[in-house]
Write a protein that binds this DNA or RNA. Structure first.
Length: 972
DNA sequence: ACCCATCGATACCGA
DNA sequence: ATCGATGGGT
C-alpha cells in the first residue's frame, strides 16, 4: 500500500494530522470530522514511512472494547494486516497485560484475578462485617447496597486521584484537625474502610479495575529500566477518544508515551463522562505533558448540514471551559478555532416543538417518522433520544400505534433475568438450594417441563397453605396417596424423581453440572427446545447458552465453593445490585427506529434525530453530589461543580444534536407526568439549551381540539416488527468452516443456537495444555524460560473440574496433561527455537467472508516462516506427516499467513504432544491453498443461504457432542 | 423571606 | 413511597 492510497481523499487538515512527524501531536477533531479515518490512516502512514518498523510497535489506546474492535475493522479496510499486529486495546487491557508480563516484578501471582464492577460489590458484600464502620454502621447494616455503592465509587475516585489509603490517613491525622469534628470523624472512618478494603483484596489475591491502573503506573514509575523497554517496544503511542480518559489513565499514557512520540485524538466538546471522574481538560493535560505538541484542528464536517452545525456551535459556545474559548481569551498559547463547515450545504435548520403533554409529543414523533419514512428515510436512520426521568414508554407506544418498528437500547430493555427460560432455571436451582421454597417449586411444576394442570396445582397450594407445610412435602404426600389427576400424578412423580436425582448430584458437583444434568439428562428440555421449529424455542436456547457463558462460568471463576446453594446466593446478590445483562444483541441490520439515551448515542449518526424531554430541571438535570467525597485538600484543583455539571450537560446536548445528518427535532412538553398522575400545576419550562441552540423562542404547536384527543390505555407496546436480515460481511473461523463441512446441522447447534454442551474431558485437557504452552511461549518471547513447575501451575489453574465421569477419570486426565507438558518442556528446552508470534490473531477477506483465526505459534527465521499448531491427541510416527498434509486447519492457517504477509510459509506443522512430541510436517503448495479456498467458499455459501440440513455419517456422528439431541444422528 | 411545587434518589456509562 | 434540596412565585 503506497502513500497515494493512504492520503487519497483526505482534506488538507486531515492530511496534516496523518502525516505530521515532528513529535507529539494533538488532533482536536471536531464532531463528524473523520476522527477514525485520521487515526487509522495515521497508523498506516507511520508504518509506510518507517517511523515504526513493524505494526507490532504501535500501541493504540481506546475507550472501550467495542471501540477497539471497530478500529481494527476500519484499519483492516485501510492497512490490511498492518493494524492487526499492533496492540489496540483499552487502558485497562493494556495495564493488565503489562502486569501479567511482569507479574513477579509487580509482586503479583501469575494468575491474579481482576474483579469487575459487579464482582467487586459482591466481594465487599461478603466482607461487609469486616469493615471498620463506626457511625456508618447502622446504615451499612440496614441498607448495605445504599452504603456499598457510594463507598466503592468513593474508593474508585480516590484511586483515580492517586490517593492511597495511607495518604488519606495521613491527611486525616494532619489537616482534618481544622474541620468540624463530625466531618473529621467521617473522613477517618472512610480512610479506615478504604484501607480495610484494600487489605481484603490483597488477602484474597484479587484486584479491582482501579488497582489495575494504579499498580501498572507504580510498576513503571518504580522501574525506569522496564519503562525504557516499553518505550523501545512501542516507539509511537496513539490514544483515541482522549477527552474521556480518567486521571489515572492519563498518567499511564504519559508514562508510556514518555519518549514524546504520541498522538492524542479527541474533542473536548464531547467529554461526557465527568460523573466517573473524567476531568474536562484532558486535552490540555496532554499539552501540559508535551509542551511542544503540535495541535491540528479538524473542522471539515462530513456528517451534518450547516444548519444543524450552526445551531450546535451556538449552543456549545456557551461553555467557557473548552479549548476554543481558552484560546480566544488568550489563556493558552494556542490559536484554536473550531468553526465547523459542512460539505452538505445549509439543509433544514433544527426545529423546536412544544406540546401540552408527552403523549402529544410522542404522537408528533410517530407522525413525523411516518412522513420521513414515506419520503425514503429508512427507520434505522432515525433515532429518538430520551432522558431518564420517565421510561421511554410514551414514545414507544405512539410508534407502535403508528405501526412503526423500533428497537430500544439501554437499561429499559429486558435483560437476561427477565427471560422466562432463565427464570425457570433459577426456580429449579432455588428448589434445590431450598426445598422449602414453595414459590419456585410452583413455578417449576407449572412450567412446560412438567405441565402440571391448574386444578392439581391449586389443590396442592391450598393444602400447603392450610397445613402450613412446604409445597414439596405436600407434593410428595399427594403422589404417595394418588390424590392428583391421572396426568398430574405422572408429572408430579417425574418432578419428584428429577429433583431427588439432582439433589443427589448437587451434593458433590458444581452448580453448572447439576443444571446441565437437569436440562439434558433428566428432562430433555434442552433437546426439545433445540429441535423445535418455533423461533421462541430457538431464542430460549440462546438464552440458556448465554446464561451458561455469562453467569455459570463467571461463578465458576469467583466461586470459593462451587455448589448450587452458593450459586443461587451469588446470583441473588448480583441481581440485588442491579445486574441484568442484555441478551440477544439487537440485530444491527434490523430496520427500526433506534430509541436510546443521549449517552448511548455517542459515536453514532442518523439521518433524522428526535431529542425529547427538553425542559429545565430535566435537561439540564439537577446536580447530584456523591455521598462521600475526598476532602478538597486531596483532590486536584477543579472548576466549581455546579458549573462543571451544567457544562457537561451542555456537551451531552451537543452530542445529541450532532448525531443528526439531515433533520433535527428538539421537542419539549409542558407536562411529563404519566397519564395516571395529577397534572403539574406549573408548566415545565423549555430547556435553556434549546434557546441557546436556536437563539430564539421556538414555535408552539397548537393544542389539539379536545374531542380528537384519545385517552390512551396503558400496557406494554407490541414487540417491534421483525426486520430484514443483517447483511454485513460474514466472519468465519476455521472451526466454523470445519464444523459446517462436517455437518451443517452441527454448525447450527454450535454457532447459531450455541447449545451449551458439557465440556468433553478431551477439550478441557486440550484447553489447559494450550494455556500452559502459551504461557511458556510468551515468556520465551520476552527472553525468559518457564520451569516445568510453573507450566504445571498454569495448567492446573486453567483446569475445570466439570464433565469428568469420576474422580479417578479426572486424575487420569490430569496425569495425561502433566505428561504432555513434560514432553513439551523437554522438547523445547532441547530445541532452543524462538517463537516470533504466540496466539497470534490473523484475518483476511475471501469472497464474502472475513476469515479469522489464531496461530498457536509462528517461528520466523530469516524470511522463512514456520506455523505450528499443538495437539494433545496421540499419533503414530508414520501417520503424523499425513495428518499434517490433510489438515484443513493448517491449510487455512497457511493461506492466512500468505494473505497477511505476502509470502508463503515454508512449512506448517502439527505437534502431537503425547507420549513424546511427534512432529507432522507439510509444505504449503497451491494445492493446499486451493483446498482451503474451496472449503471457505463452500462454507460461506452454505451458511449465507441458511442451509443447515443434517449430513449424518458414521465419522461425523460418532464424535459429535450433539448426538444425544440430534434427531438425524445415526444409531451407533 | 418564606412557602410550596417539583424532582430525583436508583441514573446516564466504562474498564 | 418519602424526603430533602431547589427554584420559582409571592
Amino acid at each position: 500500500m503506497g502513500m497515494a492510497d493512504i492520503l487519497s481523499g483526505l482534506t488538507e487538515e486531515q492530511r496534516a494530522a496523518v502525516t505530521y512527524r515532528g513529535g507529539p501531536l494533538l488532533v482536536l477533531a471536531g464532531v463528524g470530522t473523520g476522527k477514525t479515518t485520521v487515526i487509522t490512516r495515521r497508523i498506516a502512514h507511520l508504518i509506510a514511512e518507517g517511523i515504526v518498523e513493524r505494526p507490532s510497535q504501535l500501541l493504540v489506546f481506546t475507550f472501550s472494547h467495542q471501540a477497539a474492535e471497530e478500529m481494527l475493522d476500519r484499519a483492516f479496510d485501510w492497512v490490511r494486516y498492518a493494524a492487526l499486529d499492533a496492540w489496540v486495546a483499552t487502558y485497562h487491557a493494556v495495564g493488565e497485560r503489562i502486569l501479567r508480563e511482569n507479574a513477579p516484578l509487580a509482586g503479583l501471582p501469575p494468575d491474579f484475578r481482576v474483579l469487575d464492577e459487579w464482582d467487586q460489590r459482591v466481594f465487599l458484600l461478603d466482607h461487609l462485617t469486616e469493615l471498620p464502620v463506626r457511625t456508618l454502621r447502622p446504615r451499612a447494616l440496614r441498607q448495605p447496597l445504599r452504603f456499598l455503592t457510594p463507598l466503592l465509587s468513593f474508593i474508585g475516585r480516590a484511586k483515580d486521584d492517586a490517593v492511597s489509603p495511607e495518604a488519606y490517613r495521613a491527611w486525616c491525622d494532619g489537616a482534618a484537625a481544622s474541620l468540624p469534628s463530625d466531618e473529621a470523624d467521617l473522613h477517618r472512618e472512610l480512610a479506615d474502610c478504604y484501607a480495610a478494603y484494600q487489605e481484603l483484596l490483597e488477602r484474597d489475591g484479587v484486584m479491582d479495575f482501579g488497582d489495575l491502573i494504579v499498580r501498572t503506573v507504580r510498576l513503571l514509575e518504580g522501574r525506569p529500566g522496564l519503562l525504557a523497554e516499553y518505550h523501545q517496544r512501542f516507539p509511537h503511542v496513539l490514544a483515541d477518544e482522549f477527552q474521556d480518559t480518567s486521571r489515572a489513565e492519563l498518567r499511564l499514557i504519559e508514562l508510556l508515551a514518555g519518549h514524546g512520540n504520541a498522538t492524542a485524538v479527541g474533542d473536548d466538546d464531547q467529554a461526557i463522562y465527568g460523573f466517573r471522574g473524567v476531568p474536562w481538560d484532558n486535552l490540555l493535560a496532554f499539552l501540559r505533558a508535551f509542551p511542544l505538541a503540535k495541535v491540528v484542528v479538524l473542522t471539515q464536517n462530513f456528517r451534518s448540514t450547516q444548519g444543524i452545525l450552526d445551531a450546535a456551535t451556538r449552543l456549545i459556545r456557551a461553555n467557557s471551559y473548552r479549548l476554543e474559548a481558552l484560546s480566544l481569551r488568550g489563556e493558552i498559547p494556542y490559536s484554536i478555532t473550531k468553526e465547523l463547515t459542512s460539505i452538505h450545504g445549509p439543509g433544514h435548520p433544527p426545529v423546536h416543538r412544544q406540546f401540552p403533554s408527552v403523549e402529544e409529543e410522542a404522537e408528533f414523533v410517530a407522525r413525523e417518522v411516518r412522513k420521513l419514512n414515506a419520503a425514503g428515510v429508512p427507520y434505522r436512520e432515525i433515532a429518538l433520544l430520551y432522558r431518564n426521568r420517565y421510561r421511554p414508554d410514551p414514545y414507544l407506544r405512539a410508534l407502535s400505534e403508528e405501526g412503526i418498528p423500533w428497537t430500544l437500547a439501554g437499561r429499559f430493555r429486558a435483560g437476561m433475568f427477565d427471560q422466562e427460560v432463565i427464570r425457570l432455571m433459577m426456580s429449579f436451582l432455588r428448589t434445590l438450594a431450598d426445598p422449602g421454597d414453595s414459590q419456585s417449586l410452583y413455578h417449576l411444576l407449572g412450567s412446560p417441563i412438567y405441565r402440571l394442570g391448574g386444578e392439581d396445582l391449586a389443590l396442592l397450594t391450598s393444602r400447603s397453605q392450610r397445613e402450613h407445610r412446604p409445597l414439596r412435602q405436600v407434593l410428595a404426600a399427594a403422589v404417595a396417596a394418588g390424590s392428583l389427576s391421572e396426568e398430574g400424578q405422572q408429572a408430579a412423580a417425574r418432578a419428584l424423581a428429577d429433583l431427588a436425582a439432582c439433589e443427589d448430584l448437587a451434593r458433590g458437583n458444581p452448580a453448572g453440572r447439576v443444571l446441565y444434568a437437569f436440562l439434558m439428562e433428566r428432562t430433555g428440555y434442552l433437546q426439545a427446545l433445540a429441535q423445535s421449529d418455533d423461533p421462541a424455542a430457538g431464542q430460549a436456547v440462546e438464552h440458556i447458552a448465554e446464561f451458561f457463558e455469562r453467569v455459570v462460568h463467571r461463578f465458576e471463576e469467583v466461586a470459593r465453593y462451587d455448589r448450587v446453594p452458593w450459586f443461587v446466593r451469588y446470583v441473588d446478590e448480583l441481581r440485588e445490585l442491579g445486574w441484568n445483562p442484555m441478551v440477544g444483541e439487537a440485530e444491527p441490520g434490523v430496520d427500526a427506529v433506534q430509541v436510546m439515551t443521549f449517552h448511548q448515542a455517542k459515536g453514532m449518526e442518523f439521518v433524522a434525530v428526535f431529542l425529547t424531554g427538553l425542559v429545565e430541571d430535566f435537561f439540564p438535570g439537577r446536580i447530584t453530589r456523591p455521598t462521600f467525597v475526598l476532602p478538597r485538600g486531596l483532590r486536584g484543583e477543579d472548576i466549581p461543580e455546579d458549573i462543571a455539571h451544567l457544562e457537561e450537560q451542555r456537551r451531552l446536548f451537543y452530542v445529541g444534536m450532532t448525531r443528526a445528518k439531515r433533520r433535527l427535532y428538539l421537542l419539549s412538553a409542558d407536562d411529563y407526568r404519566p397519564p395516571g398522575e395529577a397534572p403539574r400545576k406549573r408548566m415545565a419550562k423549555v430547556s435553556r439549551f434549546v434557546l441557546e441552540a436556536l437563539g430564539e423562542q421556538g414555535e408552539r404547536s397548537p393544542e389539539a381540539p379536545a374531542l380528537l384527543r384519545i385517552r390512551r390505555q396503558g400496557g406494554e407496546p407490541p414487540p417491534p416488527a421483525p426486520g430484514s436480515e443483517g447483511t454485513g460481511p460474514l466472519q468465519l473461523s476455521f472451526r466454523q468452516v470445519d464444523d459446517w463441512l462436517t455437518c451443517p446441522l452441527k454448525y447450527r447447534y454450535v454457532h447459531v443456537l450455541r447449545v451449551p454442551i458439557r465440556l468433553h474431558p478431551i477439550v478441557i485437557l486440550g484447553n489447559a495444555v494450550h494455556q500452559a504452552i502459551q504461557a511458556y511461549h510468551l515468556a520465551k518471547v520476552q527472553g525468559r524460560t518457564l520451569p516445568l513447575a510453573e507450566l504445571e501451575a498454569v495448567f492446573r489453574h486453567a483446569w475445570r473440574s466439570e464433565g469428568f465421569l469420576s474422580a479417578a477419570h479426572e486424575e487420569e486426565m490430569l496425569r495425561h496433561g502433566a505428561a504432555a507438558l513434560a514432553a513439551f518442556h523437554r522438547f523445547e528446552e532441547a530445541s532452543g527455537a524462538q517463537p516470533t508470534f504466540v496466539e497470534k490473531f490473523f484475518a483476511f477477506v475471501e469472497g464474502e467472508a472475513k476469515v479469522i483465526g489464531y496461530w498457536d505459534r509462528v517461528d520466523r527465521i530469516g524470511n522463512q516462516a514456520l506455523i505450528i499448531d499443538y495437539k494433545t491427541s496421540e499419533v503414530g510416527e508414520e501417520a503424523a506427516d499425513h495428518r499434517a498434509r490433510e489438515s484443513l486447519q493448517l491449510a487455512i492457517y497457511a493461506l492466512g499467513y500468505e494473505r497477511m504477509f505476502g509470502d508463503r510459509p515454508h512449512e506448517v506443522q502439527l505437534r502431537f504432544l503425547t507420549p513424546e512430541v511427534v512432529v507432522g510436517r507439510a509444505t504449503p503448495t497451491d494445492r493446499l491453498a486451493d483446498r482451503a479456498l474451496a472449503a471457505i467458499r463452500d462454507a460461506t455459501a452454505g451458511i449465507r443461504s441458511g442451509a443447515f440440513a443434517a449430513k449424518p455419517s458414521f465419522a461425523a456422528c460418532s464424535s459429535c457432542a450433539y448426538r444425544t439431541i440430534c434427531p438425524s444422528a445415526l444409531p451407533l
